[in-house]
Design a binder for these strands. Sequence first.
DNA 1: GCCGTTTTCGGCCCGACTGTTTTCAGTCG
Length: 566
Amino acid sequence: MQNHEIAKILDEVADMLEVSEDSFFRVRAYRNAARIIRDHPLPIAQMDLKQMRELPGIGADMAGKLKSLVDTGDFDVRRQLAGKIPTGLIELLRLPGLGPKRVRLLSERLRIRDIDDLKKALGAGALRTVRGFGSRMEQQLAQALIGEKHAARARLMYAEAAQSARALLDYLHREAAVEHVEVAGSFRRRKETVGDLDVLALSAAPAAVMEHFLRFDAIKQVLGKGDTKSSVLLSGGLQVDLRVVARESYGAAMVYFTGSQAHGVHLRRIAQSRGMLLNEYGLFRGAERVAGASEEEVYRALGLPLIAPELREDRGEIEAAAAGRLPRLLAREDLRGDLHSHSTYTDGRASIEQMAVRAREAGLDYLAVTDHSRRVAMAHGLDPLRLRDQWREIEAVAKRVEGIALLRGIEVDILDDGSLDLPDDVLAELDWVVASVHYKLSQSAKEMTRRMIAAMRNPHVDVIGHPSGRLLTGREPSEFDLDEVLHVACEEGCALEVNSQPERLDLTDSACLKAKHAGVKLVVSSDAHHPRDFALLEYGVNQARRGWLEPADVLNTRPLAQLRQR
DNA sequence: GCCGTTTTCGGCCCGACTGTTTTCAGTCG
């Protein structure tokens, strides 16, 4: 049983406990445990009771339940709740305006057990007979049920959200009362997908800012508006929450709205333990404001150094900060080269020379030209003959374009059985070999693991490209045993890629962290198919930073000479 | 259900906005 599966079950139990009006704190204990387990780099299923108990937020009781879940597939509390609460009822929680209290009310008063029941009750006008439900609620629910399929729309990819964010910020800057404005939330934490934009504005005249905001022409619907906070839906479906705060509160508000929620809760607990109160307006001791204008100030007053937004997930960053052991995170400027790019020899859109020139402009010292191998027929993949042809071209361009070193590379396909799409003697003549899976992504975990390991065992392979093959636009990651792959990668000195394409971002942040712990090196690559794609490296760096990666963990931070003698 | 630099019992993060109320509960982030 995978960590995310365990976490999902714990969250479901928390939902059921909430609907049955169990203790709020018990519910929170389950949610907390779910989050801890979801984020944990090692498989919980392989831990014994003692190791489970050592996780923060998992006590003796929870550890026992987890053990039972892993061993038998279920545990006492879950069994009891499942007999009492229909699963359809839990799904109602996802509807807007419906929380545990109202769902329970619906179930008791109207015998509603699932979404179908709710639809019928709405149609019969039965809802308004229940205390706490009025016409607005009926309307809201009816609308949500009509748009049910659309409501489940995916979160936006970070790069997409960035476009909306830029347009919105440009617009907000036009109001003179806005002294400063930034996007906080998961966007600022650089999560790979973003559900909404939390925008924070600094102003002494909140009313003017609100008024201006609500006139933004991309707004489709105003979900709520107040003196300091408003929520809207943009025409693209993205939700935006705007908060306006005063100067003395800006830092505290930034901490608060950047989140994550778990990080914030942890900070507020620390504040409390020191006899202070932390909220979005500041850090207070009694009536005295101890800090609030800047984030640095707030963290410092809690005895901590500033923590990078990308780390704020309560995955140990607060403990690391307290111990003075925060990582020195990778930055875009640390990257000296790009080790995955394409040209018109296969499916790239620009010549080797155009790519080289732009890579140099992007501040890179070296670029590996890694076109596809023949198996990728769609891209007119290279056979040994055309590959040798390309080497002559690389050599010629290297003479014409100064200031950047070009490496002879390949993105060689990993075939179904783990063998490579080009013979060893050809691979031996290359400076840099990326090995990637492009076909038969749906093999069993066992087959895929064996396939990747076979590729890594080939001494010419330097890095595995986009290891999971997942696309945020809808393709699930292929299944394989990450621990096993990391083990072999470490053994063979084979690196894993962090692919910067916005829809790939593969490896994920938590896989980066796992790789780091396993002693495996990473490569942050653009996988550029166009000269402008070198700008995408920013996204790969975001992902790497969320995975706690430091420059030393990433091979292409090294000068070329050092990379070669690896 | 977790946890301990006041505690092994008695706490547990915090506030804005909405809808439905006539002073507040529920939801949301």
